[in-house]
Design a protein around this nucleic acid. Structure first.
Length: 1072
RNA sequence: GGGCGGGUAGCUUAGGUUGGUUGGAGCACCCGGCUGAUAACCGGGAGGUCGCCGGUUCAAAUCCGGCCUCGCCCA
């Protein structure tokens, strides 16, 4: 057993920094894992952060929950490896570099050099690595950052390729189109986030067009705000339920703005609801009918040469679509498959030809129309309208104002454009996704069932490719001759099929991999295969973490076999459709398995105003503000106790301060109180019998037992916040404010005594157990305490509850050579103490009400009713400053009764007449009514009243200094009263005076910073009107204040002496 | 526009699946007390139309419907 050192004042920052050093030196983290090597593994997977941004307080929150579960499981005896990880690819990295190097287009990047650009990206990824490492270490997130997985490593990429090949071989990978907002100037398509940066209000021409039917003399009228998409028109969509009207032009309008028009007698078809807004001519309605009647009709293309029909039967016909509305336009939607997402989806469904009329630079493709070919589409709006006007295909033009996305870099309007894209056929595995998701234990449940489940039920194919430079390259090659597709599942695969194996690079990134050409694998084809020039969605990278971290299967399959499926992952709720999804997507498609068994989805961290923290809003909180003030313990504890993990947390810096002052300072001072006496007395913990300890000790141990088991159960149910609040309440209220307060005197005695030893054992056992229960959440201070009391790190100690072997008691394992549990709970003892504490409060209330100061003792006190708490009478008498405390049976001596309705019982009986019964009860005499009720002869407002219908409360009669409390729950509830004798006698006044003098002298000693044991010489002057101070009490004053020479005088003391007033008498004192 | 979640005292929140007339707690504030007890502790006070409107009921923070508002995700 180590000899504990005395403790001084708490400095959380230096304490934590010193422990960081100790942990590093002693390899405590590694030890805590390796010592549990034989335990059942608990598999954790770290969601990789990107180190190209500074870590903030919200990262500390997520990492706290990751850490605390891993630490808890390790203490339970599990083998918990924790490999770190870094997410290093992706668009944000490229954007960062583009901004910095002023490379605002793909052209500029290529000019700069793709290799050089990717080198810059690679560097940029590590910009804040050091900041992340420091934050991680300082907050005590135990994770292996010396051997992390890194998504840009070739091994990692190769594993990703391998998994993609599994999907490819199952036919789950295919090439299609995805309509994306695209900027031809920068050659870049944009994520929704980027699109949101560039919305601008613009005024543009919108046009109403006449699509002339093939087998009918009428034309269908459609509307668009993007004339440049008209050459690409391949169909018209109508709402099958919408009512359309066929009308005839009967007269010219009054006036006409702009181009277009219609001849008298011309017949047009459009939605009935939109006739008035659309048409300017006088018309007659010939017929109305539902849209379904229009379906299947063919019309003449506006630009007959622009798109080839191919084998499409649906081309240039009218089709039904559920997205058609009559809120604007004509109720007929012009469909250009390649230039709108709805259009594309519809086109794929009905089989429109999917052919571009616009090239990747935003120019019309040759063959579209001789006056448009090769021109930038946005410059052609006017000419297109002209062309249609001259062909009599334009009904009307109208300027239209709307918000339209623009490139945030160049300010040019974005074009919605069907880009070549590779997809994972998630729709094919939807049922499996749902089935696997059902097996996941989600916290909270609604994220799994609601948010995530809803997403899975509407799952779309995963657009997995990006037209970018910095990322895992798409390992698909296509034969230039026969179109055969080949997915390379490894570097070796490339070597085996490469035309020139010497070109196959070590570094699997672009541009090196772009140079690799492969032999076509089709029999008889001698073509060369070229790589599809895409990189993969960086979410794919992180979704591969569970196997790519092991370079599976190239480095062997053992690691994955032992570490899959994952037991626990934890990230912010914003990862629902991010990492939570991609992990499941990859495991389902490549492994046909669920990926993780438990997922804790965390609420966002908001600022005090409830706004999301972000750099741009300048409301982000630097974790170091708190690490360097209250420490990491207080920061972590604050975050865990201030709400359920899945609820958004409004981070309040003052809350961290409060947590520190309340929880940690209190615990430290309890510890300091214990350890300093332990050192002074050479205390050594032994197998000290609990049964022979004072009730106060047994009570505290019973409470500890209850709180420890409850904490464990709450942990199991993810309710970390409830668990920790309960423990905090125990430490602050039960341990510090009651046990230690009531026990101080027990340790003051210099002499060894059984009672003192009992107290020291109790404190030792409780402190050590509390340290272990807190260790997962706040790992620093409790380690300092545990090390000093036990001689070993708390992180190498066992979890005191629940496991192993499913034990249900709290274990005290820190006595060398002994394994012993706490005594089991004594709920009756807890009840009695609870009553004693409630009565102590009641007593304080009585004194306030009666205006009797605490230091003046009362001659007597009586307890009326309640449990027998005679074991606590002396404790309570001391607490209440009462000379003698006894029980009194005669309630009526101090009290009378009052009848209160039992609403539940009476409500069920009286229903609507409840208010009348209530009034009757209030008006009746309580004693008589209660007697009648007990005799079964009571009727109020026409209802028979039984004892169940009312509750009897006792209240003090007038003139008694008394207080009553309701104690107990439900059936067992009863009224307990405390009555205090308010009389004063010379003897009581003398005792009170002694106590006042002691208090003042002690305060003065403290102010002078005297050593506790220092001896003094004390002189006291009792002024006019002062009570007599009896000899015994004067002796008591001298003992308590450690006075060697005491002088007691009457009369006024000297000016320079300290003075105070008791009952209007001046008392002076001085000492040296 | 769709999905999910939140709105309770100046601030942070508990409770809400199970309706019960008096909605708890902490911080801050005011008054008092206590202390060799710690940036502590104890007692009391003030502070709430439980987002709004309507419904069900003897009774609604709680159940139902609508609305407003904030957040996240997706369009």
């Amino acid at each position: 057993m180590a000899s504990p050192k005395p403790a001084g004042d708490l400095n959380p920052v230096s304490l934590e920094e010193a422990l960081m050093t100790t942990w590093k030196r002693e390899q405590t983290f590694q030890q805590s894992i390796q010592m549990r090597h034989d335990g059942a593994p608990f598999i954790f997977l770290e969601g990789p952060p990107t180190a190209n941004g500074l870590p903030g307080i919200h990262h500390v929150a997520a990492r706290t929950y990751k850490d605390l579960v891993c630490r808890w499981k390790a203490m339970e005896g599990h083998f918990v490896e924790r490999k770190g990880g870094w997410d290093t690819h992706g668009l944000p990295v490229e954007i960062e570099v583009q901004k910095r190097l002023d490379l605002l287009s793909n052209e500029a990047i290529l000019e700069f050099g793709m290799k050089e650009f990717n080198d810059e990206c690679k560097k940029s990824v590590w910009t804040y690595e050091d900041a992340w490492r420091k934050m991680t270490e300082r907050m005590a997130f135990w994770v292996d950052l010396d051997d992390p997985y890194i998504t840009l490593h070739n091994e990692y990429i190769e594993s990703g390729w391998w998994a993609l090949k599994q999907m490819f071989d199952k036919g789950l990978l295919y090439k299609g189109h995805k309509v994306l907002p695209f900027c031809p100037q920068t050659g870049t398509s944009y994520s929704t986030h980027e699109v949101a940066l560039g919305y601008k209000e613009v005024e543009e021409p919108s046009v109403y067009l006449k699509f002339k039917l093939v087998d009918d003399d009428a034309a269908v009228l459609a509307w668009t705000t993007t004339p440049w998409t008209l050459p690409g028109n391949v169909g018209l969509a109508v709402g099958p339920e919408v009512t359309y009207a066929r009308i005839r032009i009967v007269a010219e309008p009054e006036g006409w703005d702009g181009r277009g028009g219609a001849a008298i007698g011309e017949e047009l078809i459009l939605a009935e609801d939109l006739l008035a807004e659309t048409l300017r001519h006088q018309i007659e309605i010939i017929d109305t009918f539902p849209g379904s009647e229009l379906v299947g009709k063919a019309y003449h293309p506006l630009f007959p040469d622009a798109v080839e029909r191919g084998d499409s039967e649906a081309a240039w016909t009218i089709v039904p679509a559920d997205f058609v509305t009559t809120t604007d336009g004509t109720g007929v939607v012009h469909t250009a498959v390649m230039y709108g997402e709805d259009d594309y989806i519809l086109g794929m469904e009905v089989g429109f030809p999917a052919q571009h009329t616009v090239d990747i630079d935003g120019r019309f493709i040759a063959g579209t129309h001789n006056s448009l070919d090769g021109r930038y589409v946005k410059d052609c709006d006017d000419d297109i309208i002209d062309l249609l006007h001259y062909d009599n295909l334009l009904y009307r033009e109208q300027m239209y104002t709307h918000d339209y996305p623009h490139c945030w870099r160049t300010g040019h309007p974005l074009l919605y454009y069907a880009m070549d894209s590779w997809f994972v056929r998630m729709t094919a595995v939807k049922e499996k996704l749902l089935e696997f998701n059902d097996q996941v234990e989600w916290a909270p449940e609604w994220v799994g069932e609601g948010r995530f489940g809803e997403w899975l039920r509407n799952v779309k194919d995963w657009a997995i490719s990006r037209e970018r430079f910095w990322g895992t390259p798409l390992p698909v090659w296509i034969c230039e001759e026969c179109g055969h597709q080949h997915c390379a599942g490894s570097r070796q695969d490339m070597l085996d099929t490469a035309i020139d194996a010497a070109v196959v690079p070590e570094d699997l990134h672009r541009p090196f991999v772009d140079d690799v050409r492969l032999h076509c694998q089709t029999d008889g084809c001698s073509g060369e295969m070229v790589r599809e020039p895409f990189v993969l969605d960086c979410w794919y990278d992180s979704g591969c973490a569970f196997f790519a971290q092991w370079h599976h299967p190239f480095a062997g399959t053992e690691k994955l076999d032992a570490n899959f499926p994952i037991d626990y992952i934890c990230e912010g709720v914003d990862q629902t459709r991010g990492w939570f999804y991609t992990l499941l997507a990859v495991s389902t498609t490549a492994f046909d398995s669920l990926c993780y068994k438990r997922c804790l989805s965390l609420g966002l961290i908001l600022d005090k105003q409830g706004k999301k923290m972000s750099k741009s809003k300048d409301n982000a909180i630097d974790p170091w503000d708190h690490f360097n003030r209250e420490g990491a313990d207080a920061t972590r504890w604050y975050m865990v106790t201030s709400g359920a993990p899945w609820n958004p947390l409004k981070f309040d810096p003052a809350g961290v301060r409060e947590t520190y002052a309340k929880m940690f300072l209190t615990l430290w001072n309890v510890y300091k109180f214990h350890v300093n006496y332990a050192v002074m007395d050479d205390f050594e913990p032994t197998d000290n019998s609990v049964a022979s300890r004072a009730p106060l000790d047994r009570w505290l141990l019973s409470r500890l037992n209850a709180v420890g088991l409850s904490l464990h159960d709450q942990f199991v149910g993810w309710d970390f916040h409830k668990a920790c609040r309960e423990l905090e309440d125990f430490v602050v209220n039960d341990l510090s404010n009651w046990y230690v307060r009531r026990s101080r005197r027990r340790l003051w005695d210099d002499a060894e005594s059984a009672d003192k030893l009992a107290c020291q054992h109790t404190l030792h056992e409780v402190l050590v157990t509390v340290c272990r229960l807190m260790a997962p959440v706040a790992p620093y201070m409790v380690d300092e305490i545990h090390r000093n009391l036990v001689g070993e790190s708390v992180h190498l100690a066992d979890w005191p509850a629940g496991t192993p072997g499913c034990r249900r008691d709290i274990q005290i394992l820190h006595i060398p050579g002994k394994v012993r549990g706490l005594p089991s709970r004594d709920e009756e003892l807890e009840e009695r103490m609870s009553l004693a504490r409630a009565l102590a409060e009641a007593g304080r209330r009585i004194r306030v009400d009666a205006g009797r100061r605490q230091r003046l003792p009362c001659q007597a006190g009586w307890l009326v009713g309640g449990l027998d708490i005679s074991e606590f009478h002396s404790l309570l008498a001391d607490e209440l400053n009462v000379e003698a405390l006894t029980t009194e049976d005669d309630l009526d001596r101090f009290q009378q009764i009052e009848l209160v309705p039992n609403w539940k019982a009476l409500g069920a009986k009286a229903r609507a007449d409840l208010p009348k019964v209530k009034e009757a009860l209030a008006a009746a005499d309580a004693d008589e009514t209660w007697a009648a009720i007990q005799a079964g002869k009571c009727e109020l407002a026409g209802f028979e009243i039984t004892p169940d219908d009312v509750e009897v409360r006792r209240v003090e009669k007038e003139g008694y200094a008394a207080a009553s409390i309701e104690f107990g729950e439900g059936e067992a509830a009863e009224t307990v009263s405390l009555v205090l004798d308010m009389s004063s006698t010379p003897d009581l006044l003398s005792k009170g005076l002694a106590r006042d003098i002691i208090r003042r002298v002690q305060q003065k000693r403290k102010n002078l910073d005297l050593d506790i044991a220092a001896r003094i010489s004390l002189t006291v002057w009792l002024g006019d009107g002062s009570p007599e101070l009896g000899d015994v009490d004067w002796e008591h004053v001298q003992t308590e204040t450690r006075t060697d020479v005491g002088v007691l005088l009457s009369g006024k003391g000297p000016e320079e002496a300290d003075s105070f007033t008791v009952d209007e008498a001046s008392i002076h004192f001085s000492f040296d």
